[in-house]
Design a protein around this nucleic acid. Structure first.
Lengths: 151, 151
DNA sequence: CGCAATCATTCTCTTGGTGAATCATTAAGT
DNA sequence: ACTTAATGATTCACCAAGAGAATGATTGCG
């Protein structure tokens, strides 16, 4: 029997949506969506990943990944190349423009963080970071994968 | 220049989506959606509220509220009654079934909280609650209004 | 009284995403 | 080697949440 009414879940959902809004605003000025930003992050850290592996990683369905990559490819941020060893696979990599978009995304994340935690002291930020990390680890969430791809 | 890469925003978005998923799972077994649950909460605390005022409160558009209330009314959870003083307005209130649904929602929130914070000590939970509350207050978020209605 | 504002409602449309069917390619069994 | 099953990518039809504009009823103000 908890001493206080359940509010952590509510606050997380509320603040999470708020954080996502801020980030979406940042990425919109970069010309991509948060979902696409997630793809760029994963491809950056896993060059040569196949679309199938990317879908698994994101928890998205294959057809979704196709349209995501379609947009990123035609925006010149990601390249598809057929695997030599298995010609069914499309291997993904960032283009130069994709690399610099990645830089923009890092800046966007810094800006989001700044806006979010503007009223907080360093100690508060550290404490919050520790608690959220611990919670993420306890819940088994992938530290790379941004939400919004759930199947 | 931050000492650590920006991660609080990311973790909040990730954990917020996770928390929302858990809650959605709970409400699905109650036969309503999280958005509808939000309406029930507001109506419960503001009996006789008009649809317009509810829309403002939720940050949703009027037409959205109409369909939300349509479903809740036909599910027998919320009642619409024309205001006597201003016959343009529909005044909303919970039915008896709506009241018991409210009870179910409280239980769902407790269950969500339990699942989320299962690995945490009381001290950690308290610390996290304090930090999230402070953050919510600093960002000017309404402690009643659940996300997902942004316009 | 007549006109503008307000509340509710309906309708059309967009966006993000799912799921099934299809095609090319590869792997496995005999 | 030859057929069959599995796998990766793609396309297409579909769905649900929600936004926004147009409409109708009612009210308040000049």
């Amino acid at each position: 029997m908890p001493q206080r009414p359940a509010r952590i879940g509510f606050l997380l959902a509320q603040l999470g949506a708020h954080a996502a809004d801020i980030f979406a605003e940042q990425t919109r000025s970069l010309g991509i969506t948060p979902s696409e930003a997630g793809v760029i992050r994963i491809v950056a850290r896993n060059p040569g990943i196949s679309q199938r592996a990317l879908a698994d990683r994101l928890g998205a369905v294959q057809s979704r990944v196709v349209t995501l990559v379609d947009r990123l490819e035609s925006a010149g941020l990601v390249s598809r190349t057929r695997s030599e060893s298995d010609r069914r696979m499309q291997l993904l990599a960032l283009t130069n423009a994709g690399e610099s978009m990645l830089g923009g995304l890092r800046q966007a994340a810094e800006e989001q963080e700044k806006q979010l935690t503007s009223g907080f002291t360093e100690e508060q930020k550290t404490a919050l970071f520790e608690l959220l990390s611990a919670l993420g680890a306890a819940r088994g969430l992938d530290a790379e994968v941004h939400p919004g791809y759930r199947s």
